[in-house]
Computed example of a mutant assay.
Amino acid sequence: MCLLTSDGVRIEAAHTPRRARNEAASGACADAPAIVLAHGFTGALDRPALRRAAAAFSQHADVITFSFRGHGGSGGRSTVGDREVEDLAAAVRWARALGHRRVATVGFSMGGSVVLRHAALHGPGAHDERTGAHPDTAVSVSAPARWYYRGTASMRRVHWAITRPGGRLVARFGLGTRIHPEDWDPVPLSPTEAVPLIAPTPLLLVHGDRDPYFPLDHPRMLSAAADPATAELWIEPGFGHAENAAGPELLGRIGEWIAARIPA
């Protein structure tokens, strides 16, 4: 499926039916919930880690996967979390066009920051829900709390890939990711600035204590900024970073958390 964002970028997307009804129908069920997955930087809808996550979440709901701009078969170039909010909004609108009245968003790393900003910019009170782009609940896994973080070796490598011509060439030809060469102007709302705007939408923050990209001050900053009445923080022992490190047990618990908030 090809989606078109509000700023004219073509985005590849796919629909995975909920496993419990696969034998009965292949299309979307009008009253079934949907989970929209937002991958991390250099990911795509056909990468094994995202496909594994989609299979796990399909135990609980229909699943929409897509590739962010500049990734996989999507058009455009990556803005590393800025304009990607429009990509996620297009995927959520598609889920609702398929008949899903309740939609959860789940993002990993860069996708986790996009989920936070999307929920703030398209949530109740911040956006007209008639557009269909709003989430009913949001989950952010392994997300940064602030921009321009270079405090780990992993993030210094990411910044080299984003900011240097040679790094962008490596990202394009080695990782299949096309990065926009221009700096942000203006700098987008940071994840920590976005989090207070998400309530009353339920929010789950998930982070590993062995994350090589973002240490634990990031999820703690996000949690401190969130509404305690509607947000939860899980610090996962032994968990690394994003979809590549997320195992069946963690994905299953996240799926159960979502199912309790947007039941079938």
Rank of each mutant, 00 (worst) to 15 (best):
R10N: 15
H15E: 03
A25H: 02
A30N: 10
D31N: 04
A34G: 15
L37Y: 03
G43D: 08
A49E: 14
L50D: 11
Q59V: 15
I64T: 12
F66D: 10
G73W: 05
R77H: 14
R77T: 13
S78A: 09
V80R: 04
R83F: 01
E84R: 11
A90S: 12
A90K: 14
A90E: 03
V92M: 13
A97W: 04
A104E: 04
G111L: 01
S113Q: 10
V114W: 13
H122W: 09
P124W: 01
G125Y: 04
R130D: 15
T152A: 01
S154A: 08
R156F: 05
A161T: 13
I162F: 14
T163F: 02
R164F: 02
L169W: 06
R172Q: 08
F173D: 14
P181D: 05
P186M: 02
V187W: 08
P191I: 15
E193M: 07
V195E: 08
L197A: 01
I198S: 03
P200W: 13
P202E: 05
D209F: 08
P212F: 10
P219G: 11
R220C: 09
D227V: 02
T230D: 07
E236P: 14
A242E: 12
A246K: 00
L251G: 03
E256W: 14
A259E: 00
A259G: 12
A260Q: 11
R261Y: 09
I262L: 04
